[in-house]
Each structure stands twice: as structure tokens, then as C-alpha cells.
Nucleic acid binder design. Structure first.
Ligand SMILES: [Mn+2]
Ligand SMILES: [Mn+2]
Ligand SMILES: [Mn+2]
Ligand SMILES: [Mn+2]
Lengths: 218, 218
DNA sequence: ATATATTTTTAGACTAATCTAAAAATATAT
DNA sequence: ATATATTTTTAGATTAGTCTAAAAATATAT
């Protein structure tokens, strides 16, 4: 049995080191989870006792095979629930996260697999993030940050790096959504902000925005 | 803020005294929740501090207006989730309870109201139990136990009193479901067991069964 | 290489929810 | 009405998860 709190730590480690395979520091976990480092150390010991993480004192933690699968299942659930909320229950992409944080801890294999089928086996969540399959595997799609795109180049919005309510609502305001066609017209030499064309409208986006939007070239 | 554990106690009190309006004993709650009486006393004090229950030492507890609404919302969520599981996610009526026990604690008003709409405002759950509305009101339908039905009388199965996996699976086996038309042929004078006709098949059901099946006369 | 700064761990305390055992209150039976 | 049985509460302990403050280990800078 993995507790709710343990699941949250596993997920944090999963997100911080690429799928938990590289070691992450106590402080990094503490910051991600908004707890204290001492709490993290305590929990790491419990996870190590359960063989869910590899832990060497003062050297950080990584996920074991078992821990990685457990973490991937939490992420799978989180993202599938987000799809249900948006596709079937009229939630917008900036409203789903807090509810999904709760739903990701519901324990029922049948439930999650039926949900997957009901939603037609989606490959991505409403923020463009990949949904792990039953075995924890994710489809790696190459995507780059908008900031990396050269002038006079076209691309399509495929994800967000920052999925805070504030950023998502800003994107709504400028009518940017997953699938939006973006034409990079130019970069302002002064501050590197980008002049882009979207929905036949020219607009200027800051480097902060350009560094939080994933795109693929067309 | 009402904790998960507090919600479970409120629900138990709600179920034991008609919607929590009549006082229920410490031991009754302990039995229902499979805990010890001392734990119940502790929790009752917390609920009383939060004005969710009326409590006089040694005299049992009843729900306050606020407590009754909180309990009704848990029941509402439990039953709406059960409908989703059965109607959309291929669960059978004997599989839903444990998952609904978890889902009933998810906190999101929008979620539960969207779910209600998505399911087309169901009035009953898969076991024939009424679903409280947003204000906690339930539609009282009169239903009687099959055991109360006289010989040579027709009725329709509308609910189960006992919703254990074992009983529900037995009902599946004899092809009894909500909506099934039942004709009471006779009662066996020896043991009060009933000879009924269902789906044009005659069969005999024990008094235990007859005392756990709700029907309405046609 | 040594001093200083940062990170991590340990020690000890707190809260929520539970338990066992004993004490107190209430109910029941003669 | 009194003794006995039952129910309920209290007292004290335990576990999971968290915290603060101090100690220990590691990293960084001169
Ligand atoms: Mn999310
Ligand atoms: Mn997401
Ligand atoms: Mn149920
Ligand atoms: Mn039910």
C-alpha cells in the first residue's frame, strides 16, 4: 500500500529527474512540494524502506523500477481525469488541475482503464502533456519552446511548460490554444520579445511567454 | 473545512437516524463505521465543536442543519459517482461501492454539478437509492419490502435494502434487477419463503431475500 | 587548504485519528 | 430500591505526516 502522501512524493521525484531516473535533491523536492527539507528526508526514508526509491544519504534520490511505475500511474490518472473534466464535464484547461490533484489518488485499476477507453485512449492531456500507458510508457514527441523558433518560421502550439491558471488564462485572452497555428514574424532585438501572427492577428509576446509555450515546426 | 474522516462520521449519522434528525448512539455509529466507541466519542466532540452535530453527553448525537447538508452532499456525490460508474464506465452494481467510497470525498462543487448534468440529473443510484439534490433534498418514494407483499399480487423491483456484493450477485444469478416485474404466487406456510414468478420463471426466495428487496405495487 | 556558506539530516515536538483499559454514567432485572 | 449489566466517556498510548531548531555533511571561495 502506497499512501496519498507517498504518491505525491513519488510524483515530484518523477517530474524533477527525467521520469525519476536521475537523482534529485532533497531541497528540490521540498520546493516542488512546498514542504520543508526535513519532512522530505523523513518521507524519503519511508519510500526507501518500501523499495520505491534509491537513496544514499546526502546524495539525493531516484526512483526504483517499482517506484517509477507507481509514479507513472499517478501521472496517468491525473492526466486522464483532466481529459474527462475538459472533454465531458465542461471544465476549461485552467480549472482542472486542483480537482485532478485529488482524483489522481483514487485507487481502482478498473476505473482508470475504463476511463481510458471511455475517452478513446487519449495520448495527451488538455495541456499537451503525454499520458503514460498501463505500463507507464509515454510517447515522447519532440517539441521546442517558441523562444527557439527563428523569424519567418511557422509552427503549431502543442503544449505549455507553465500550466498555472494565470498563464492559461492569458493564453485564452490572446486566443492561443493547443493546435493554434503561429507564424513568427520577427524578434525584437531590444528585449527578444516576439512578433507573431495568430488567427490572422499580429501580436507581441514576451520572452517569458515564449519560454513557456511548446510548439512543433510545420 | 471538513476532513475525510469527519465526512464519514456525518454520513454514518445521516444513515442511522432518518437523515440524522433523530439521535443515534455512540455504539451504533461505532458498529456502522467498524471503529471503537472511544474513537466515536472523540470525533463527536470535534463535530460538535464545528457545529455539525448536536451532542449531549450520554444522550447520543443528531445532525445540525449544517451537518445534515454536509452529509447529504457526501451521499449525493457517492450516488452520482455510482451512476457514472454503471452508466458510462461498464461497472456492474456490485462493483461500484468501494470506488464510490473514495470518490465521494472529492471536493469540487463544479465537478459534482457538471456530473449531475452529464448524467441527465438521475433521481436514483444503481441500487434504487434516491440522490439528494443540491440542497440536500431527496424525493421520498414509497416502497415496501417484498416480504410484505401478499400472495397473488404483482409488483416491480425498485431497490435493495442490503447492497452487499454477495446479495447483488445472487440477484444477478436469479435475473432480478431494478425494474423486474415480480408476481408473488404464494408464501410457503412452513418457512414464509415466497414462490415468485419473474421473467416467466417460477422460483423460490427465502425470507432473508424477501426482507432485503424493495418493491412497489403495480 | 582552510574558512565560510549551503544543504541535508537528526532530535524533539505537534496534530489528527485511532486504539486499549479503566472509570463513570445509564439502563435493566430482581 | 438495589445490584448487575451495558453503554459511554476519559486517560494514556501509538502512528503518519508535518514542523522548528540544531548538528553534521558537503560544496564553494579565497
Ligand atoms: Mn495538472
Ligand atoms: Mn495537465
Ligand atoms: Mn454505495
Ligand atoms: Mn448505492
Amino acid at each position: 500500500m502506497v499512501t496519498l502522501s507517498e504518491e505525491n512524493y513519488l510524483k515530484a521525484i518523477y517530474h524533477l529527474g527525467k521520469q525519476g531516473s536521475i537523482a534529485v535533491s532533497t531541497n528540490a523536492i521540498a520546493e516542488q512540494m512546498e514542504t520543508k527539507a526535513s519532512s522530505v528526508t523523513d518521507m524519503i526514508k519511508k519510500l526507501a524502506d518500501k523499495d520505491l526509491v534509491n537513496y544514499i544519504k546526502y546524495q539525493g534520490v531516484s526512483l526504483t523500477k517499482e517506484g517509477r511505475l507507481a509514479a507513472a500511474m499517478v501521472v496517468r490518472k491525473h492526466r486522464l481525469w483532466e481529459v474527462l473534466l475538459v472533454e465531458k464535464l465542461n471544465f476549461s484547461w485552467d480549472e482542472v488541475h486542483d480537482v485532478a490533484e485529488q482524483l489522481e489518488h483514487i485507487k481502482s485499476e478498473k476505473l482508470i482503464n475504463e476511463l481510458d477507453a471511455f475517452l478513446n485512449y487519449p495520448k495527451e492531456d488538455p495541456h499537451g502533456d503525454p499520458i503514460p500507458d498501463k505500463d507507464g510508457n509515454i510517447k515522447k514527441v519532440e517539441k521546442i519552446l517558441l523562444a527557439q523558433v527563428d523569424a519567418e518560421t511557422s509552427c503549431i502550439c502543442v503544449g505549455v511548460k507553465n500550466s498555472s491558471k494565470e498563464f492559461l488564462q492569458y493564453l485564452d485572452k490572446i486566443k492561443m490554444a493547443l493546435g493554434s497555428h503561429i507564424e513568427v514574424i520577427d524578434k525584437e532585438p531590444f528585449d527578444q520579445s516576439m512578433i507573431i501572427k495568430i488567427n490572422n492577428q499580429k501580436l507581441n509576446v514576451s520572452t517569458i511567454t515564449a519560454n513557456n509555450l511548446y510548439v512543433k515546426l510545420v
